[in-house]
């Protein structure tokens, strides 16, 4: 049997001007996951700091141990995860003066 994989697009050309979190996504069946964040637009001086979060129930969240990754320019970045339990989301903090960012966020899971 081939391994199963699935890519979810959790944000599509979404514009944010303050902190946000992605919708909860169930991935208990998967052994590994990778976040992809594509910044389409970001205001000068703004920064996007993203932390993978995990949850046993999709309701209450804690940070995954990998630590945050930061983006401050247009482009694509990714972050791998393993041993994450059941639910995944990204917690995103937006910094800078009157910041805005436009993003595509993908979650690729495999198991």
């Amino acid at each position: 049997m081939l391994r199963r994989s699935f890519t979810a697009v959790l944000e599509k050309n979404s514009t944010f001007t303050s902190d946000f979190a992605t919708e909860p996504y169930e991935a208990g069946w998967a052994l590994e996951a990778r976040w992809f964040v594509r910044i389409l637009e970001i205001s000068p001086g703004a920064g996007l700091t993203m932390t993978a979060q995990i949850s046993p129930d999709g309701l209450f969240w804690c940070d995954e141990e990998s630590g945050p990754f930061c983006l401050n320019e247009v482009g694509l970045a990714s972050m791998p995860l393993r041993n994450f339990g059941q639910w995944l989301r990204l917690d995103a903090r937006l910094s800078g003066k009157n910041p805005h960012v436009k993003v595509l966020i993908y979650l690729a899971v495999k198991g």
């Binding site: 959790l10 599509k12 050309n13 919708e23 996504y25 208990g28 129930d57 209450f60 059941q86």
Partner: peptide, 23 residues
């Protein structure tokens, strides 16, 4: 251009494989 998608049809969310896990 994903910006051209009309508002009501741009965010129907990806399906999930769920184990029906509750708190």
């Amino acid at each position: 251009n994903l910006d051209d998608i009309r508002e009501i049809a741009r965010d129907f969310r990806p399906p999930q494989l769920s184990s029906c896990t509750f708190f």
